[in-house]
Amino acid sequence: MAIPDFIRDLRTDIGTKLLWLPGVSAVVFDDAGRVLLGKRADTGGWSVIGGIPDPGEQPAETAVREVYEETAVRVVPEGVVLVETMPPTRYPNGDVCQFMDVTLRCRAVGGEARVNDDESLEVGWFAPDALPPLDDYALHRIEKAQAAGPTWFQGAAQPEPEAAG
């Protein structure tokens, strides 16, 4: 993930100390029900698309921007899938960040999936039953986005599914 300028500026003051940041993930589906994934340049692993909001930017705007920047696909956010605070991460350069992630379910409305910046090695559409290897973070978000249920909040009591009647 590229480091935004405003974070680079903060790091000149705080060094590598813990930095609390917002994050936005987008689980993007096409009309065939496939999910859009990117193979990250920084880790080499496949994941859902995401990034850090610019100062003042709304989460839905971040999802639209990040998906287009990384994949050239145009999307429309449809709903909040989950809100979750991630454990702190120490990056190879020593920086420590902790993200509060807002994951949005998005629908693809245009563009052809392709690598569109230097943050991805590959991008592609995958059937939910034929996903490449993914970490639990990405799998959890895809699962919750497919369910199209109420928003999932980490640590909160979750509503029980309604019984068929």
Rank of each mutant, 00 (worst) to 15 (best):
I52N: 01
G51R: 00
R34W: 05
I14W: 12
T103Y: 02
P87Y: 02
A130T: 13
P59F: 08
G33P: 05
V24P: 04
D136Q: 12
V80I: 14
E143H: 09
F6Y: 14
L18Q: 11
T62S: 05
M86C: 10
K39L: 03
I14D: 10
G155Q: 02
M1D: 06
P92W: 14
G110P: 07
L134R: 11
P159L: 05
F99P: 00
E160H: 07
R105A: 05
V27T: 15
V76D: 03
E70A: 10
D118S: 15
E84H: 07
V123I: 07
T89E: 15
M86G: 04
T151E: 14
A32K: 04
Q98M: 12
P161Q: 08
V109R: 04
T85C: 11
A113E: 00
G50A: 09
V64D: 03
G15R: 08
A163F: 14
P128S: 09
G33D: 04
E70K: 06
V115L: 09
G79L: 06
G51V: 08
A130D: 11
V75N: 07
E70D: 14
I14Y: 14
G149T: 03
P77M: 01
A108S: 15
F99H: 04
E69H: 04
G33F: 05
G111T: 09
P133G: 04
G15C: 12
Y91M: 14
E119W: 09
G110K: 08
R74F: 05
G51E: 01
A127I: 14
D118L: 13
I52A: 02
A138I: 07
A138S: 15
A32Q: 11
E61W: 06
E66L: 06
C106G: 04
A163H: 13
D9T: 13
R40C: 06
H140E: 15
V76G: 01
L19Q: 10
V28N: 03
T62Q: 01
A145K: 00
T89W: 12
L139R: 13
E78L: 08
Q146T: 14
D42M: 13
G149L: 03
P132C: 08
G56R: 09
S47G: 09
V64S: 02
G94V: 12
D117W: 10
P159T: 10
T62H: 01
Y137A: 03
E84N: 07
E61A: 09
R105F: 06
A63V: 00
E160D: 11
R74Y: 03
D13E: 14
V67W: 00
V76E: 06
Y137Q: 03
E61Y: 02
P59H: 07
P159W: 09
V24W: 02
V73W: 00
T16N: 15
A32P: 00
H140T: 13
R74S: 07
Q98N: 12
P159F: 05
G94P: 02
D136G: 11
L19G: 06
V109H: 12
D129Y: 07
L104S: 06
G51K: 02
T16R: 14
G15D: 15
V67S: 00
G79C: 06
T71K: 01
I7H: 04
V24I: 12
G44V: 12
A72K: 06
L19H: 08
D117N: 15
R90Q: 15
E69V: 04
W46L: 01
V28F: 05
G15L: 14
Q98W: 09
D31A: 05
A63I: 02
T43E: 05
M86R: 13
